[in-house]
């Protein structure tokens, strides 16, 4: 649970000035540009933004799972419990993945191997990180399936992924991810492919596991409703940069960045009647066409000023625990003045 006495605790994960670039036609372009944030123990941090804003790339960078030869971390630090992940070898990283940090993906079908049973795949995760016998591993995988709310787990361990429904598959994915009780779970759009009633089941499950295991979660989603229900803190990303970061209540009731404000007004809400939704003109610029200087939202921003094209805003603290990157706020102004 969010407990604000944890404020002084050292962060579990700290990302500093992360830059991740992708190779397009022989040249590297930053898909994640100068991103810094931290995740405290037992905290659920939401990352929201539209497709192409870099939220998935950011999480793949943390896991060191970027596609080889296409994506690379160009700069910055990823510190997990005092250890620099960006300096780790593949072998060292393998020890951390699945044990200390796990990940669940949007599409449970494509993230499982169709030719092996559920039990086999679960036991593989266990064998990789613990020294247990086959019988113990089987017993443990049945217990894990049970803990994620799968009825008749003794049967399901011997079944194949295709025999399960989408919601069940996502439960199995969660069982694999929490098998070694990781300290951090990265959930990349875990409910996007599911129907709402099933989504409700999965969200409830994630929350209860997070509480029982004292786990931290990075929840990547485009659904502001999911964020409001699940998260303690929210990071809003736009075009590869963080534009705003605040606790969930502040973000929904006192958004500061024009992009966040507009996004809040663009979603239809069940409990209000509005003839017209607010909309943002245009689309997110493609990676190759990112403006070199200035704010990347400027060309769509209704509050844009001429300076927005030249001054790159910094993520600055406007209130305690509330950061915004927009030059409407003094805190976002670069210290040394105008950058070329």
């Amino acid at each position: 649970m969010s407990n604000y006495s944890i404020h002084k605790e050292a962060p579990l994960l700290e990302v500093k000035n992360l830059e991740t670039a992708f190779n397009i036609d022989g040249e590297y372009y930053n898909a994640v540009d100068n991103v810094s944030f931290s995740v405290k123990p037992r905290q659920i941090v939401g990352v929201v933004g539209e497709s192409g804003c870099g939220k998935s790339v950011m999480s793949l960078s943390v896991m060191q799972l970027l596609p080889k030869g296409v994506g690379k971390i160009r700069g910055g630090e990823i510190v997990f419990e005092g250890v620099h992940l960006e300096k780790m070898s593949e072998k060292e990283m393998n020890k951390i993945r699945g044990r200390d940090i796990s990940m669940i993906f949007q599409e449970p079908m494509t993230s499982m191997n169709p030719v092996f049973t559920i039990g086999f795949q679960l036991q593989e995760v266990l064998f990789n990180h613990t020294n247990i016998s086959k019988a113990e591993a089987r017993q443990k995988s049945v217990a894990l399936l049970k803990s994620v709310g799968i009825s008749r787990p003794e049967k399901i361990v011997d079944e194949y992924p295709h025999q399960l429904s989408g919601g069940m598959r996502q439960r199995v994915m969660i069982a694999m991810a929490i098998a070694n009780q990781p300290k951090l779970l990265i959930a990349d759009e875990p409910t996007t492919a599911l129907d709402v009633t099933v989504q409700a089941q999965i969200l409830e499950l994630l929350k209860s596991i997070q509480e029982v295991n004292d786990m931290s979660v990075i929840m990547i989603t485009h659904d502001l409703g999911v964020v409001a229900e699940m998260c303690d803190e929210v990071i809003v990303m736009y075009a590869g940069r963080i534009v705003e970061r605040a606790d969930v209540d502040t973000l929904f009731y006192n958004p500061k960045h024009p992009y966040t404000e507009l996004m809040m007004g663009a979603i239809p809400k069940m409990d209000e009647d509005k003839e017209e939704l607010s909309s943002i003109k245009g689309i997110v610029p493609s990676l190759k066409n990112m403006p070199a200087t200035g704010c990347r939202f400027a060309n769509r921003c209704p509050k844009a000023m001429p300076e927005c094209a030249t001054i790159t805003p910094l993520l600055g603290e406007v209130e305690q625990g509330h950061e915004v990157a927009c030059i409407l706020y003094e805190a976002s102004m670069p210290k040394e003045g105008v950058k070329a």
Binding site: T197, A200, G225, V226, V227, A228, V248, M270, D271
Partner: peptide, 22 residues
């Protein structure tokens, strides 16, 4: 169905009817 929709409002904690099964 209505209770299952996540509301974009962190101050509203509502009673949710979670359906069993698929």
């Amino acid at each position: 169905l209505i209770s299952a929709i996540p509301m974009p409002d962190p101050r509203r904690k509502k009673e949710r009817i979670v359906l069993e099964g698929d």
